[in-house]
Design a protein around this nucleic acid. Structure first.
Lengths: 271, 271
DNA sequence: ATCTGTTGTGATTAAACGGGTTACACGGAT
DNA sequence: ATCCGTGTAACCCGTTTAATCACAACAGAT
């Protein structure tokens, strides 16, 4: 029975969602059992029996477990579907409230010059980078140039952002090194220009076999904001995605990106 | 000002979403500030300044904060909208996985993270940039690839650094877009390889007449450190020179530079 | 150059928390 | 009564986290 590791994963996830170890273990045990007493739960979960009561009490107040007040007490977990929904709902509420609260805070900015001529920022975490990409595209005024690998293009939201940009009248150029991905793009974004030339060759891993850092995205917005994200598969499951993100017309890197892209469009245009 | 309790609430929510106290306080502070240094964050958040760095580092890896690697460092929170989206996305992923795991009893799971840090710095002021360039070249172990315009090459110290690198046995590649400068280089650095191909075309202003930002230097050291400097002639006598400078093998920009240069050397080699 | 205040890192201390154990009181069954 | 399973509560101890301190690197001023 290899369910050991599965159990651990579930416990880990539950802990990340705010449960304590005992609570998580008890909950997992209770979903495996159809229901059970403290003793049974203890045996299945390896939580000391005397602590099952505390753990379950918490789970009860969180609405994840039902209690039958008999003697001995019998506990039962709500269904997995319900549990997932409940957790998600609760979290959504929290994020909403957080959003409101944060927005409502007066800006404590001491005093600043708003004008930023030259900035380069780094950003980690794949999701955050993806979100930033959408937002950049959403804020584009005139032009979006984008080079992606298949991984990055799979994301539905990206296509969505791009087509809404097209609807706004923004010019969209998309490049990729992957043959079949180009057809995908043409199909999903008929109005966008698909191009191919040296820029996206830079993102093709097969051109650089000894280099284990993949370039997953290159974006240039209105010729004055860029984002380059890269990805490296670190041995263990740890994904290591980073982005560098810069803006300002006089930023050298922005200029560089501008030239790379303009080069590419001149030379390669449509394929 | 009753924002006190509001702040408390936001912090509390963030903690419930998995952040530590310091992390939460720093994040809230950063959303109130448009951006700030460790000192400013410390003042607003009441987190000891020396601990702000750690907290922000975590926030960065979670994708909630962007870091500008200048000196002093400047931190900036991603927008509230992005933050909420990111947190929600992440949580959704977890619930999905949890649902699967709990329902089925199938596959295994490893665990994570080996960590490699990347950095990107910005640097202003021509002299500081020049000095940094020398230092980078002086520290090179194997290889220096350099693209310059005439302005930057005039500097005697640059030639000095380069020849001492050559003496150390470091391979030196120099590219430039300017015809007569190439002869200069061959004369002064007979041992260096002078090349010409697309990379330095990017620095040729005549290729980009509408773009008033000149790229004055591009340096790549040992394939893992780069520097790009640019220059813009601001109307009033103010010279406006900036550089972006990054290192770390897993840094996407470094990878990009690496590829640009390797491309160039393959295609163009010596003229 | 030297001096001075600031910035970033690392080590260290102290308190809080959570996991694990033990003591014990209660109630029903024998 | 005694015995056993149940439920409560107190405690111990290792880990984590908040908080402080010492210090090297650096920038800017003199």
């Amino acid at each position: 029975m290899d369910s050991e590791s599965e159990i651990e994963e579930a416990v880990e996830l539950l802990k990340q969602m705010g449960l304590k170890e005992y609570e998580a273990r008890c909950f997992v045990a209770l979903t495996r059992l159809s229901g059970g007493t403290a003793k049974e739960v203890s045996e299945v979960s390896d939580v000391p029996r005397t602590r099952v009561y505390d753990a379950v009490r918490v789970l009860e107040t969180e609405g994840l477990v039902e209690v039958q007040h008999s003697n001995p007490r019998v506990f039962r977990a709500i269904s997995v579907g319900e549990a997932v929904d409940t957790l998600l709902d609760r979290f959504e509420l929290k994020t909403e409230k957080l959003g409101e609260t944060l927005r409502g805070l007066g800006s404590a900015t001491p005093d600043e010059d708003a004008e930023v001529r030259h900035e380069v920022w780094t950003l980690a975490d794949g999701r955050a980078i993806a979100n930033r990409t959408y937002r950049l595209i959403d804020d584009a005024d005139r032009e979006v140039a984008l080079v992606v690998d298949s991984e990055a293009f799979k994301d539905g939201k990206l296509v969505e952002s791009l087509s809404s940009a097209l609807d706004r009248g923004v010019e969209v150029f998309v490049g990729t090194a992957e043959e079949d991905l180009r057809d995908d793009i043409r199909e999903n974004l008929p109005e966008a220009e698909v191009f191919v030339s040296h820029v996206e060759a830079l993102t093709d891993p097969s051109n650089f076999p000894e280099d284990d850092t993949r370039i997953t995205r290159m974006v240039l917005i209105d010729g004055e904001t860029f984002l380059v994200s890269s990805f490296r598969d670190t041995g263990g499951g740890g994904s290591d995605e980073h982005a560098v993100f810069g803006k300002g017309f006089n930023n050298g890197l922005v200029a560089l990106m501008r030239r790379l892209v303009s080069d590419s469009l001149q030379t390669g245009s449509d394929d």
